[in-house]
């Protein structure tokens, strides 16, 4: 009341609203995920969410910030979900906990909390896990392995050591290792391990959710469209140059977390650019780096490093892409 000034009316969007819709949009992908890979992923998501909320609560207390408002803004939950969805579903529980703690405490709150984090928290959590536990982080669940809730729970508690054949490399990883033996790529791509259709279906689920986000204007078209378009163009180009060495675009668009990244990860507003042109450049930069890391780098999937690197460039990107003000030349 001290500062009652116009506007006296307000629209209805709120941060918690936006984040809630983002979580809603993740659900189709999540359901398909569970359909093909069992409830392991759900356990991970629940654990990550609980860890995130508790971590957030304590750190808010320590920083003497009102907890209620900030706990209900749903941002910690979105971070937790994205991280859990990026981690293999057969990772043991402590992987998820460590990753989430890093994401919330280091990547988010050490940088000042919501609105101030320079880096995408989920990607920092993921990158740290990838560097620290490469063996666990690059093993994906073998969909042909029969599973039930008991096994899923046991894996969740103790890891995969008791079960043979439950894990295999991800397609990106598989193709990469095979290529290192100087083979032609075409036969490799036809191997079952390189054509994990189940994972592609999950990607399709995220695509649906992403379209929903576009439709509800939670995100703008710039980031996902440019990201996918760039990935498409680069991979097609390389494929044209040497079809025996470089996979065609379908392989890159459908595998890995491409769809999740396009619609949910690179669209994190806080650590991304704000101008339309900046968004275009940002998405282009990430796609370029993702491709380079996937094909030439040391890791099979490069989204985390690409996003983190692009995050560093955001202030500069924003600065250089200021749009023209009404009537200015």
């Amino acid at each position: 009341m001290i500062n009652l000034q116009s506007p006296f009316v307000q629209g209805s969007t709120s941060v918690s609203n936006i984040m809630f819709i983002v979580m809603l949009a993740l659900i189709p992908g999540l359901i398909i995920y569970m359909y093909f890979f069992g409830i392991g992923i759900l356990l991970n998501i629940i654990l990550a969410s609980i860890t995130a909320i508790i971590a957030e609560y304590f750190i808010l207390k320590i920083r003497k910030i009102p907890t209620k408002v900030f706990l209900t803004d749903n941002t910690a939950l979105v971070t937790a979900w994205l991280l859990a969805l990026s981690i293999p579903s057969i990772a043991p529980w402590w992987i998820t906990v460590i990753g989430t703690l890093f994401a919330i405490i280091i990547a988010k709150h050490f940088y000042g909390g919501i609105g101030s984090n320079i880096f995408n928290p989920a990607m920092i959590g993921y990158a740290i896990l990838l560097i620290s536990f490469p063996a666990i982080m690059t093993k994906w669940q073998n969909p042909s392995y029969l599973y039930d809730a008991n096994i899923a729970f046991s894996v969740f508690m103790h890891g995969i050591d008791n079960y043979d054949g439950i894990a295999s490399a991800t397609p990106l990883d598989y193709v990469k290792t095979e290529l290192l033996q100087n083979k032609n790529i075409l036969p490799i791509l036809n191997e079952p391990l390189a054509r994990l259709t189940q994972m592609q279906w999950v990607g399709f689920g995220f695509l649906l959710g992403g379209i929903f986000l576009l439709f509800t204007k939670i995100i703008t078209w710039h980031l996902p469209v440019i990201y996918l378009l760039t990935l498409f163009t680069i991979s097609s180009l390389f494929h044209l140059i040497d079809p025996s060495q470089f996979a065609p675009f379908q392989f890159h668009l459908l595998n890995g977390g491409t769809m999740l990244a396009a619609f949910f990860i690179i669209t994190d507003p806080v650590s991304g650019p704000t101008t339309p042109k900046g968004k275009i450049f940002f998405a282009f930069l990430i796609a370029l780096l993702v491709y380079l890391i996937r094909v030439f780098g040391g890791y099979p999937e490069g989204i985390a490093f690409a996003v983190i690197f692009a995050n560093i460039c955001v202030p500069l990107i924003d600065n250089l892409t200021q749009p023209k003000v009404f009537g200015h030349d």
Binding site: F70, T75, G113, G115, T275, P323
Partner: peptide
Amino acid sequence: LPCIRCARCAEACPVEL
């Protein structure tokens, strides 16, 4: 809450600020 840099304000600004 703090600004989450969502740029909704920029999308709404009639002066393109």
